[in-house]
Amino acid sequence: MKQFKTAALLLVACAVAMFATFAPSTSQAAPVNKTIILATTTSTQDSGLLDVLLPVFEKQTGYFVKTISVGSGQAMKMGEKGEADVLLVHSPDAEKKFVEEGYGVNRMLVMHNDFVIVGPPSDPAKIKGAKSVKEAFGKIASADALFLSRADNSGTHSKEKKIWKAAGINPAGQKWYQETGLGMGATLNVAAEKNGYTLTDRGTYLALKKNLGLNIIVEGDALLLNVYHVIEVNPAKWTKVNNAGAKAFAKFMVSKKAQGIIKTYGTEKFGSPLFFPDAGKKPESLGL
């Protein structure tokens, strides 16, 4: 009886101790408006860029950023519902619609990199040297070569659908076209494992390259440009949105300091930068 009681007592003591350690961490984030929910794409997290940028921003401003990394499509859905304060996304067509419909305000160009088609070095569909990305997609389709699609309404997926459409092919339901429904990193791993082709942003590919065994097969087409914008969720639609925080974050992303970090991020580790800063540039100068 006594031992059972001590055991119970011990359990309660543990619980109290645990709650006690929680208290400081919650009180730290207690001023409600000091928390920002950033909905972003998997590529900004999987490439490691946010791990470098956010600590600088948090230190500078005292905000605490809750990064929810999902596809661009889901990020914008969160914005539509007022469940995020600010977005960092790369799906220009959907973004324009998002802003036009009044869900977002102050859309600003942050950076770009590009998409590339990666695949097994053996290149079974012989797409290397293809003149355009449309031609490459056409060859993949006619060779019935395995292609892995994100299929998650992310920016990458939107871009992929756009290219299929431009190439005049409807891949849905084809045997060689498989949908992972996963993030970029995970999809690259699936492609590597199955020796398939996939469309990826260069940043995530470079960050994961060492374990993949996939090569860049097609690159450089103007259609493959990958542009990131920061968008504040419209506070007029949702009163609970932390617009001051969103503004601070957006301002930081286009600031000299952040743009400098973006410019050099990855050079040391991967030999080339993963993103190119574009703050203040006109979208037309990128060919948009």
Binding site: S25, G48, K66, G185, N189, L208, L212
Partner: peptide, 16 residues
């Protein structure tokens, strides 16, 4: 902040 062992494992796997 809210990263636990299982979610960290999923993320690191995704990152390769």
């Amino acid at each position: 902040y809210s990263r636990v062992l299982t979610t960290a494992t999923v993320m690191e796997t995704g990152k390769g």
